[in-house]
Structure formats: structure tokens, C-alpha cells
Amino acid sequence: MNIKKPSFALLMLLVVGLWAVPSIATEQHEDPTEALVREIAKTLRCAVCQNQSIYESNSDLAKDMLSVIRTKVAAGEPESAIRDYFFQRYGDYIYLEPTAQGGNRLLWIGPFIALILGALALFSALKKWQPSQSRPPEVDKDAFRNRLKSEMDKID
């Protein structure tokens, strides 16, 4: 056991060291322009890779689009102008999240309309399924008795 002690101490040192790593990593401060570049690039869709943002994509086009954004941010263009620049060229395909404008509004409202319609349908169906409590089925007691009697007579 004694022989193992130094190696155990070394291991503990390593573990403690690993704990310290993230605190060193977070000490790097991001350039505010880069933060804005990332914010914009994350909302724009890479035109050649279906469902990845410009920021996440490794395609050449996305990288060059990112550098266009970087240049524009550095030039002091507002975020809306930069987003609009790409919109003017690639249409609303470029937005990862569809804008709530024009025909797109249907995409936003549609699910809620469907939900309301579904609730109405369920409500009316439930009403129908409930046993009607108004009145128990009326039985003509005399007719029943007569019928029973005649059936019994037949058996006899």
C-alpha cells in the first residue's frame, strides 16, 4: 500500500488539475463583434446544406457567407440590414425560422387552429359518448307481463 501512495497522490493532483481546466477556459473573452456575427449566422440557413446554420456548417459557401457577415458587422451595419441582405438574395429560404409574414403566417397560426378544431371535435364526441341520463327506457309493464305469460304458456 505504501508503494502505491506516490502514484495515488499524482492521480489526485491530475484530477484536481482537470477541475481547474474549465475555469481557465472561460477566462477567454469573446470579441463583441464575433458574438454578433455568431448571433446572426446562427439564424441564417446555409444554402447548400438543407438544415444547418451558416455558423455550424463546414461548407465553403457557409464559410464565405460567414466572412461576408463578419465584414458587414465590422463595417457597423445593423443586424437587421445584414439579415435583409441575405433575404434579398436567397429569399426566405435563408431564415432557419420562418418569418411570421405573408403566407408564412399560416405556419404559425395553423397549429393553433388545428388544436382548437381538435378540441371542438373531442368535446362534441365526448358529449355524444355520455350515456343519456334524461330518462330510463320506459317499459310497458302490462305488455311485458302478457308477453311473458304467453311465452310460458307455450312452454307448458
Binding site: 444554402a47 447548400v48 465553403d60 459557401l61 464565405d64 457567407m65 466572412s67 461576408v68 434579398q88 438574395r89 436567397y90 429569399g91
Partner: peptide, 13 residues
Amino acid sequence: PDQKVAIDWGVYG
């Protein structure tokens, strides 16, 4: 080379 003109024209391929 850096497709500045291409992006300006909305080219993607």
C-alpha cells in the same frame, strides 16, 4: 475567389 460576387447574386451552386 472568395465568392463575394456570387453571394451578392444569391448564387448557391
